[in-house]
Design a protein around this nucleic acid. Structure first.
Length: 314
DNA sequence: GGTTATACGCTCCTGTCGAT
DNA sequence: ATCGACAGGAGCGTATAACC
């Protein structure tokens, strides 16, 4: 939680940044009315806070319960930090992938991630990176066997909001196949570390360019625009890869794109192109001194209710 | 030719609403 | 209360068109 003092500080800074941008670059038609401007600022502050919250996990002491999929306290992101601190970079990144693929549900929390990673406490689990490396089909096969039982045991294991179109149903392109394609993808490079090294080398050390390369070249089933963006920004926040979002990636987006259209064109159906809006947002973020992840997140939440601040849930 | 942007179809689950 | 139809959601994958 931001302290009140911090919040006022951000409000002042963001308001000044927006005014300076409008003086020097151009008008923002979506925030002509002060309540719209205020709602946008509130959403940006919320986004900053969410990023800081995850970054803070990175410097916490992690309890063993967080790492153990048989514990109700299991948390894949905290577990990732634990493994990072203990020199197991692959396991850390693998847990981030699982966390993003399944997502955290508003009510069920990490239950789905926990039960797949931990194989419901069965002896063939947990499905660590070590296991997956030797047998990339481990989760795929296990899921085919246990899918029905999982559906019928009365436990609610829903996907997170960003992953609400996914299914556990064992099809040729379901979760099992998706997970396998991720393992195969990383193995092409040898390890997560080798993969990220390649991106840094290709980008000649530029964190934003490295992010861009990873986003453009990554090919994993069911990892489209939203999942890739969430995954890469999570690696960055937990300090697992030296990268940084270089754009809001509006091409192919729904919420963030309509937020940007609203901000620049005054309405969500404005015909401004994703490309031009992306470029404008990069400039705007400089004026506001915020990252592109915060920008993308804030616009999506703002456009749901542009005239009145509504806290985002889930 | 190869790459990238758009249009569209497909899928899943949840919440709502009216009818029973 | 319970059921079923229905719409809607920060999505994904594919074909096609548009672009070097």
């Amino acid at each position: 939680m931001l302290k009140q003092k911090d919040k006022l500080h951000y409000e002042t800074q963001l308001l000044a940044g927006l005014e300076r941008y409008e003086r020097e670059v151009g008008l923002l038609n979506g925030i002509t009315y002060f309540e719209n401007r205020q709602a946008l600022i509130e959403q940006i502050i919320d986004s900053i806070r969410r990023v800081q919250y995850v970054q803070a996990i990175g410097s916490q002491q992690i309890s063993q319960d967080r790492v153990d999929p048989n514990s109700s306290l299991f948390d894949p992101l905290k577990a990732a930090v634990f493994y990072r601190n203990n020199g197991n970079h692959d396991e850390a990144c693998w847990l981030v992938y699982l966390a993003i693929h399944f997502g955290k549900h508003l009510v069920d929390g990490w239950r789905l991630t926990r039960d797949i990673y931990g194989a419901l406490g069965m002896t063939n689990g947990p499905f660590t990176w070590q296991v997956m490396q030797g047998y990339p089909n481990a989760i795929n096969d296990w899921l085919s066997q246990n899918y029905q039982a999982m559906r019928n045991d009365g436990v609610s294991r829903r996907f997170g909001n960003h992953r609400k179109y996914e299914t556990l149903r064992p099809t040729s392109k379901g979760t099992g196949a998706a997970v396998r394609s991720y393992v195969d993808w990383v193995m092409r490079y040898g390890s997560h570390g080798d993969w990220f090294d390649r991106s840094i080398k290709t980008a000649q050390g530029d964190r934003r360019e490295a992010f861009s390369w990873l986003y453009r070249t990554m090919r994993v089933h069911k990892f489209g625009r939203t999942a890739k963006f969430d995954y890469l920004t999570m690696l960055a926040k937990l300090d697992l890869a030296p990268i940084e979002a270089n754009s809001a990636y509006l091409t192919g987006a729904t919420g963030p794109l309509s937020g940007a259209k609203l901000l620049y064109g005054g309405r969500t159906t404005s015909s401004l192109s994703a490309d031009k809006l992306d470029a404008s947002l990069i400039e705007l973020a400089k004026y506001l001194d915020i990252g592109m992840q915060e920008m993308e997140d804030a616009l999506c939440n703002w456009q749901k209710s542009p005239g009145r601040y509504v806290a985002f849930r889930g």
